[in-house]
Amino acid sequence: MAFNPIVDHDKCVGCEECAEVCPVEVFQMQDGKSVPVNADECIGCESCVEVCEEDAIVVEEI
């Protein structure tokens, strides 16, 4: 089973919470926004979704 984390850059405020909480380092900050640069490493734990106060992240099962 694979997962695809998606960041809505219109909602992302660049707080870096997702990058800090992710156990497999999926996210990096680029131009003040979170980018899932290692999306293939996502384990689907949804920790990023839980800490994102802006509801800017969804994790889809693929």
Rank of each mutant, 00 (worst) to 15 (best):
A2Q: 11
A2E: 14
F3K: 08
F3M: 05
F3G: 06
F3D: 01
N4K: 12
N4C: 07
N4G: 00
P5A: 12
P5G: 09
I6D: 02
V7P: 06
V7W: 03
D8H: 06
H9V: 04
H9G: 07
H9I: 05
D10N: 11
K11G: 01
K11N: 05
C12L: 07
C12W: 07
C12H: 08
C12G: 11
V13T: 14
G14I: 00
G14K: 02
C15E: 05
C15N: 02
E16R: 02
E17N: 14
E17F: 15
C18H: 06
C18L: 01
C18K: 00
A19Y: 07
E20N: 12
E20H: 11
E20L: 13
E20R: 12
V21D: 07
V21K: 10
C22G: 10
C22Q: 05
C22V: 01
P23V: 02
P23G: 06
P23M: 03
P23A: 04
P23S: 05
P23C: 07
V24Q: 03
V26E: 06
V26T: 01
F27Q: 03
F27R: 01
F27Y: 15
Q28H: 08
Q28C: 05
Q30Y: 14
Q30G: 03
Q30I: 10
Q30E: 10
G32H: 12
K33Y: 13
S34V: 04
S34W: 06
V35S: 13
P36N: 03
P36Q: 02
P36L: 03
V37F: 12
V37L: 12
V37D: 07
N38T: 01
N38L: 08
N38P: 12
D40Y: 10
E41C: 06
E41Q: 11
E41M: 09
E41H: 14
E41D: 15
C42W: 03
C42E: 00
I43L: 09
G44Y: 07
C45V: 08
C45T: 04
E46P: 07
E46Q: 13
S47N: 13
C48F: 07
C48W: 04
V49G: 11
V49P: 03
E50S: 12
E50Q: 10
E50N: 11
E50T: 11
V51F: 08
V51P: 00
V51M: 03
C52M: 04
C52I: 00
C52Y: 04
C52T: 02
E53T: 06
E54G: 01
D55E: 15
D55V: 15
D55L: 14
D55Y: 15
A56G: 11
A56E: 00
I57M: 02
I57S: 00
V59A: 05
E60G: 06
E61P: 14
I62F: 13
I62P: 08
